[in-house]
Amino acid sequence: MGEATDIAKQFKGTFDTLHALVYFVPETDQYLSAVGLRPGRMCYFAGRSAPMGAVGPDVVAATFYNFNPEIITRHLPRAWTLATPEAVVAARFEAVDATYRRLLGEEVLASEDLAEAVELVREAAGGCEVEGRALYAGHAGLAWPEQPHVALWHGITLLREHRGDAHVAALMLNGLSGLGALVTHVATGAGFTPEDAKKTRGWSDEQWDGAVAELAGQGLLDADGGLTDRGTELRERVEAATNAASEGPWARLGEEKSARLRELCRPLSRTVAKAGVFPRPPAARS
């Protein structure tokens, strides 16, 4: 399982870009708005949760974990009065289709390499466990799209939500709430700034400062808001537990095929990254 754990650690850098683009491209708001949703956060919350059905804000807060529940209640369950989950799922796949065509081009989408990547990601997804993974289970219940490039996105989405559910479990077992998880993640220096975190996840200054004070009182943050040794150890335990619980797909695929899937997806991820889909990191901003 050591090799599978090493591969699980590399998921974000190699594969996650190919899933996460859906949260930033204009096609998402375009296609989901066309079926009745309001642009912005409603498209995000409803789009990602639709595979679970017409769930309420509590279910989304539980499975998404680090968003302020007050923000979610502004969009759910109202979203389901505007569009059915089935229509939202279909629109999301259409958005992915249009996005991949725009960013990767028809030649790449019709290539033998992409077809091979789809077969490998389907095989890897066969190693995902459904027990205790509500968000993954919803996505796993969807039929695989017929178009190869949309199927690739769906397969990577399964791997991503499977890993995400494991991460939530690891955070809970290590005593971190959704906001606590977000604050400590920012404190690692590997994520976004506190200002970006508060803005995108809907937390107020008062809520954020309260969490910082609580974590400092637990000895996890220092006076400057950075992680203490104890805080660093806690985050390392969380990541180790997440990786260990995410081995299944890569153990199923095996070392050689996993390496091949990375080889096939890496240039696609680089193309997406170079297209400027994602916000620049704070250090790169003017």
Rank of each mutant, 00 (worst) to 15 (best):
residue 263 E to Y: 13
residue 89 V to N: 01
residue 201 R to K: 14
residue 270 R to V: 15
residue 175 G to V: 14
residue 273 A to M: 11
residue 89 V to D: 00
residue 194 P to T: 04
residue 80 W to P: 05
residue 151 A to I: 04
residue 92 R to S: 12
residue 83 A to T: 10
residue 87 A to G: 05
residue 180 G to Y: 01
residue 21 L to D: 00
residue 89 V to M: 05
residue 44 Y to Q: 13
residue 27 E to A: 08
residue 174 N to R: 08
residue 78 R to I: 10
residue 81 T to I: 01
residue 212 V to A: 01
residue 235 R to K: 13
residue 34 A to T: 00
residue 249 P to N: 06
residue 265 C to V: 08
residue 175 G to T: 11
residue 123 E to R: 15
residue 150 V to N: 02
residue 73 T to D: 13
residue 10 Q to N: 06
residue 242 T to V: 03
residue 90 A to Q: 11
residue 166 A to M: 10
residue 155 G to A: 11
residue 285 R to H: 14
residue 48 R to D: 02
residue 221 L to P: 01
residue 250 W to K: 07
residue 226 G to A: 14
residue 226 G to D: 14
residue 80 W to T: 03
residue 137 A to R: 09
residue 160 R to V: 10
residue 105 G to L: 07
residue 27 E to H: 10
residue 87 A to H: 03
residue 131 E to C: 05
residue 131 E to F: 08
residue 232 T to R: 14
residue 274 K to W: 12
residue 5 T to N: 04
residue 281 P to S: 12
residue 97 D to S: 12
residue 276 G to D: 13
residue 197 A to E: 06
residue 282 P to Y: 13
residue 193 T to E: 02
residue 92 R to D: 05
residue 158 L to R: 02
residue 124 A to P: 04
residue 70 E to G: 12
residue 203 W to E: 01
residue 217 G to M: 04
residue 219 G to M: 15
residue 246 S to V: 12
residue 1 M to W: 09
residue 237 R to G: 04
residue 123 E to I: 10
residue 152 L to V: 11
residue 62 A to K: 14
residue 6 D to F: 08
residue 274 K to C: 12
residue 262 R to Y: 15
residue 79 A to R: 07
residue 50 A to N: 04
residue 72 I to R: 02
residue 285 R to I: 14
residue 280 R to L: 15
residue 191 G to L: 04
residue 161 E to M: 10
